Amino acid sequence: MSMKSKMMTAAAVFALTTGAAVAESHMSADGNPMVGGAEMLPDMTIVQNASNAENLTTLVAAVQAAGLVDTLSGEGPFTVFAPTNDAFAKLDQDQVAELLKPENQAALAEILACHVVAADANSTAIMGMIENDGGMHPVTTVGGCVLNVEKSGEGDNTMITLTDERGQVATVTQADVFQSNGVVHVIDTVMLPAE
Rank of each mutant, 00 (worst) to 15 (best):
N49I: 01
V172M: 01
S73E: 04
A87T: 07
D176W: 02
A29G: 06
L112G: 02
Q174M: 06
E98F: 07
L16N: 13
Q93A: 09
Q105Y: 00
A38H: 08
S123P: 01
D92R: 04
M159G: 01
G19N: 08
A109L: 07
A119N: 06
S28H: 13
V96K: 03
E24M: 08
V183I: 12
L99R: 01
F14R: 00
I160P: 06
A106D: 14
N52R: 04
T171M: 13
L147Y: 10
E154S: 11
F178K: 04
T173F: 00
A118F: 01
L16S: 15
E150Q: 10
S73R: 12
N132Y: 11
V63N: 11
A87G: 01
A11W: 13
K6S: 14
C114D: 07
L100I: 12
N32Q: 05
N104V: 09
A170W: 07
E110Y: 09
T124M: 02
T57N: 15
T124E: 15
A121W: 02
L108N: 02
V142I: 15
D30V: 08
E195Q: 15
T84K: 03
A65Y: 02
G19I: 06
P193H: 08
S73C: 12
A97K: 11
F178C: 00
N157V: 04
V169A: 11
A61D: 11
E75P: 01
L91F: 10
G143P: 03
M129A: 10
A82Y: 03
G135L: 08
K6Y: 11
M159V: 06
D188L: 14
F178V: 05
M159C: 05
F88G: 02
T9I: 13
S5W: 10
E131R: 10
E103I: 10
M44L: 05
T58Q: 09
T141E: 08
H115T: 14
I126A: 05
P102F: 10
L192A: 09
L147W: 03
A106E: 06
T171I: 07
A11I: 03
H115A: 11
G167R: 11
N32I: 10
T18G: 02
D133G: 09
M27I: 14
A89S: 10
V117K: 00
A50R: 07
S5C: 08
V172H: 01
L91R: 03
L112K: 13
V142R: 11
P83H: 05
S123E: 02
D86C: 08
E110P: 12
G182M: 00
N49A: 03
K4N: 15
I46S: 02
P102E: 10
A89C: 14
G67D: 10
K151N: 07
A65P: 04
T141W: 04
M40H: 00
M127P: 09
G144M: 06
T163Q: 13
M127K: 07
V63G: 08
G167V: 15
V149Q: 02
G144P: 00
Q174V: 15
D164S: 09
P33L: 05
V35K: 01
G128F: 07
E150L: 13
L108I: 15
F81Q: 05
H137M: 12
A61V: 04
V47E: 03
M127N: 04
N85K: 09
A15T: 13
A29N: 11
I187N: 04
V69T: 15
D43N: 05
V184K: 09
S123Q: 01
E103Q: 15
V169H: 11
L100K: 12
D70F: 07
